[in-house]
Amino acid sequence: MHPSPLLERADAVAGAPQDVDATVPAHYGSPLPEQAALVAGLALSALARDVVAVTGPDRRSWLTTLSSQVLTHLAPGDGGVETLLMDAQGHITHALAALDDGQVLWLVTEAGAGPALADFLDSMRFMLRVEATDRPDVQVLGAMGQGLEALEEAARSVNLPDPHAGTALVGTWRDPWPGVVEGGTSYDLGRTRPHPGQDYRAGMVLVPRDAVTQVAEAFLGEEAPDGRRLAGALAWEALRVEAGRPRAAREVDARTIAHELDWLRTAVHLNKGCYPGQETIARTLNLGRPPRRLTILQLDGLGGRAPVPGAVVRLGERAVGTVTSVVRHHECGPMALALLRRGVPSDAALSVDLEELEAGGGPARVDATQEILVAPEGRAQASPAQRPGAELRRR
């Protein structure tokens, strides 16, 4: 987990040392305009991610047996896929962006998780022709909309010192969110209203760490359109939260299952072969309901105060959930993602605990309203209309 070279820029402002995005700039002096530039395709962000390289002729079929997605069809330039690694109980252990360049299967995970991911994959090799290696020499840059193509072009324009290494473009991953990929399904209410992330178009470009500064300079170069700039992690996170896009470092805890985050839409193939956690995926889809549901919270910003991740969400005085991400959006104001109990009514007025106390000594809170991501009914579009065994239960 090496800091981004962009932290060395004079205008880069670092975040808190304990933050999950501490290895990249939090902002460059103007967090809100940086969001607008990302939306317009005029900015790039350094992303706090680790990269693991998997080599060997069995790499795609092997990882397909370990993960929730089919990777056997991956080919250079196809944009890759998203997949999950889970334990036997279906709890998420890694969320991966996966792309293949014809020789290497590149896996992007959260910052600090690369060594553990490589060790786990190495322990699962058995006799197969694969090898997993943590690659701190490769870092991740992100862009949105037409900015992703501009970032790719900038990476291609940078030639590496080694004449056999080619350009600085290692590979590009295109985020499928919020689409429903082949074999996936959705828990949202998209059949009656647009998804909050319908305009979200994001992607990641992998480049050698030593070339990050050159790629950024090429993106911002004199021939680039006016208005191009760098955007920090605060800007990237605000747009992610607006789109309801889950992130492992923020939304996943020790008991999270994919259904709660609507991650079956982009990261799970329901018709593939066996893999760890598949029983939980199938059982919850067909027989049960996810115990929690991800929602966007629109926070009252009049008081100028905002909660922090981990804050308690309340219905009246009763604790009904936990905040996972908090941002300040350039148009919508303060927003958050939260995991709520499934039974919380979708129209319920909620409040969120703040760290400080009111003048009288009582707990300070901020009001919140919900923007639904996962339907409270707990049914996916692929769930059976009649749950198996319902007739026997009635008897």
Results as ranks from 00 to 15, higher is better:
302 L>K: 12
287 L>Y: 14
232 G>R: 04
180 V>I: 08
92 I>F: 11
333 G>K: 10
311 A>Y: 03
225 P>E: 10
267 A>R: 08
3 P>E: 02
282 A>L: 10
263 W>K: 10
260 E>T: 11
212 V>M: 14
378 G>D: 08
217 E>L: 02
358 E>W: 11
318 R>M: 09
271 N>H: 15
293 R>E: 12
44 L>R: 11
49 R>E: 11
383 S>A: 07
213 T>H: 12
228 R>Q: 08
64 T>W: 01
213 T>V: 11
393 R>K: 15
97 A>R: 14
388 P>D: 04
259 H>G: 06
78 D>E: 08
203 G>P: 00
281 I>C: 11
221 G>P: 04
98 A>F: 00
225 P>A: 08
46 A>H: 03
68 S>K: 00
12 A>M: 12
103 Q>G: 15
184 G>R: 00
284 T>V: 05
361 G>T: 03
393 R>C: 12
371 E>L: 14
133 T>R: 15
271 N>Y: 12
202 A>G: 09
52 V>F: 07
290 P>N: 03
70 V>C: 12
125 R>Q: 15
74 L>S: 03
136 P>F: 01
220 L>W: 07
361 G>K: 13
276 P>M: 05
291 P>K: 09
115 P>I: 02
249 A>Y: 01
198 Q>T: 14
357 L>T: 15
314 R>D: 13
372 I>L: 12
390 A>D: 11
131 E>W: 10
166 G>F: 02
34 E>K: 02
228 R>S: 09
313 V>C: 00
166 G>P: 12
126 F>E: 07
339 L>I: 08
49 R>Y: 02
155 A>Y: 00
185 T>C: 10
285 L>I: 10
36 A>N: 13
77 G>A: 02
389 G>P: 08
19 D>H: 15
72 T>P: 06
391 E>F: 14
312 V>G: 07
10 A>T: 15
110 E>A: 13
342 R>D: 04
165 A>R: 09
201 R>W: 01
334 P>F: 03
158 V>F: 00
134 D>A: 13
327 V>S: 06
121 L>E: 01
160 L>F: 10
250 R>L: 15
328 R>G: 10
28 Y>E: 04
282 A>V: 11
258 A>D: 09
102 G>P: 07
329 H>L: 06
350 L>Q: 01
345 P>H: 05
359 A>N: 12
337 L>M: 09
170 V>C: 08
190 G>I: 08
210 D>C: 08
62 W>I: 02
335 M>R: 11
238 A>H: 04
356 E>T: 12
336 A>M: 04
260 E>A: 07
302 L>S: 15
14 A>C: 02
316 G>V: 02
196 P>M: 11
315 L>A: 13
117 L>H: 06
106 W>M: 06
188 D>T: 07
289 R>I: 13
175 D>H: 02
245 R>Q: 13
119 D>H: 14
322 T>W: 09
245 R>W: 07
175 D>Q: 06
18 Q>M: 15
126 F>C: 06
139 Q>W: 07
285 L>E: 14
370 Q>A: 04
203 G>R: 00
382 A>G: 12
176 P>T: 10
157 S>K: 01
10 A>D: 13
27 H>R: 06
172 T>P: 01
310 G>Y: 02
237 E>T: 13
370 Q>P: 01
245 R>D: 09
103 Q>V: 14
357 L>A: 10
235 A>I: 06
48 A>D: 06
336 A>R: 12
